[in-house]
Design a protein around this nucleic acid. Structure first.
Lengths: 225, 225
DNA sequence: CTTATTGCTGACCTAAAAGACAAGTTGTTG
DNA sequence: CAACAACTTGTCTTTTAGGTCAGCAATAAG
């Protein structure tokens, strides 16, 4: 799973002899990554200093640099962690016997859950894309596009079979992504508008229902085959 | 229109004697603002140096500072310019005799056009909200929320009158905003996925059609009253 | 137990970036 | 056209941030 970027990932694949040190290393690395994620999400890449990340992770700056020799590497690792999760959880494969509606419902639900569970990773990703994807562009071309093309084809086949209405498949995906990811990225705006300090369980429940419902209606999906 | 933030806007309301200097000043100010907008959109607040903004605007850094004595002020002005445009163009008022569908169609179209015409402003706004809206939070509370509440009420009245289906009004708006703004903020991702260098006239046409259609279907709006 | 490896820290160094200041230039106005 | 205001630039200071390096501390391996 270390295929994402050229040569500049830290490769840690040496038999893993779980000594006291290696355990500590793992724990500390993930603490650093979580801290970095929070800061990158909130302040962006340039706005997050190594010093600040170190403080958040409760270590010294030099120690941080010991684990991640430079900031760009750290940033790429944070992005990578997020993408790994997304790839793992988001396949749009047509399960045997599933109706389009079922596939879509599952897809929307999983995207919503990612927004709910990894809001910071999502924000880091958003900053990156808005900024023109300087780091991720290659990845989008090599990994996301093929999957996208495949998924679009699938929806087209649904249309041809008359299982769903004649909608625009590409823009359907853009809308689904936007509508789901917004619950991570723009949560502050929603909190203000809903008059809450935090979006809670219930809000996400409603959101998931609403968005799923919108999408299903848009598809005009026929329930029985 | 200078009510947005406390006291730190530059107030320029002195009778405007259109001399050679004042014309030049206006021209230069807007050139600076456009340059700043581009950089803030791409690099975020911290990633954009005054030096770089000056270079982009083709003036010296010292001259930039003469016009905008500090970076934060410049940033706020960029945000303000964007918000002024949005407020001006986005009212969800029920025009006499208009059906819900017509109102919604107009609303979506206008939001799409904002994404198309002011992608950079939109990106700056997105960065700001994702970052927790440190500058804009007050504004969201005082200006956006009241308008939002009003618009939600309107949709509820539509529902009560049976003009549209029983959808979730709050989340309807969240979805519309997300689905339209994504064409500004995530344009790079779409370019990659559609295999284009730039989203063109035609893409936006299709996008507008798709999103409008999507929303109208979600509403289940009845065409005749 | 002692040697090698890994983890951690403090003292630097360098570059960039915000912006203060003073001095010069250009345009405006009585 | 003289005096004043608006504009522009070069120089300097301070702060911050990324990162190096040498050495000390803790742990693992023989």
């Amino acid at each position: 799973m270390y295929f994402l970027f050229k040569a500049d990932w830290i490769l840690v694949e040496k038999k893993a002899k779980r000594t006291k040190q290696s355990i500590n290393r793992e724990e500390l690395e993930s603490r650093i990554l979580r801290s970095a994620e929070v800061l990158f999400a909130e302040k962006g890449y340039s706005g997050s200093s190594m010093e600040a990340i170190a403080v958040t992770a409760n270590i010294s700056k030099q120690n941080l640099i010991y684990y991640f020799p430079n900031k760009e590497l750290l940033y790429k690792r944070v992005l990578k962690e997020m993408l790994d999760i997304w790839i793992e959880k988001l396949s749009f494969l047509e399960t045997q016997g599933d109706t389009p509606e079922a596939v879509i419902r599952r897809y929307v639900r999983e995207k919503m859950q990612l927004s709910r569970m990894y809001p910071n990773g999502s924000k880091v990703f958003a900053h990156e894309i808005i900024s023109g994807a300087p780091v991720l562009k290659e990845y989008l071309i090599s990994h996301l596009k093929p999957q996208f093309d495949r998924d679009v084809m699938l929806v087209k086949s649904w249309i041809n079979k008359g299982l769903v209405d004649d909608i625009d498949p590409e823009h359907l995906f853009f809308t689904i992504w936007a509508a789901t990811q917004t619950y991570a990225d723009f949560s502050v705006q929603m909190e203000v508008l809903l008059g809450k300090h935090r979006l809670d369980e219930d809000d996400f429940e409603r959101a998931e229902l609403a968005v799923t419902d919108f999408v299903v209606r848009a598809l005009g999906a026929k329930k029985n085959n």
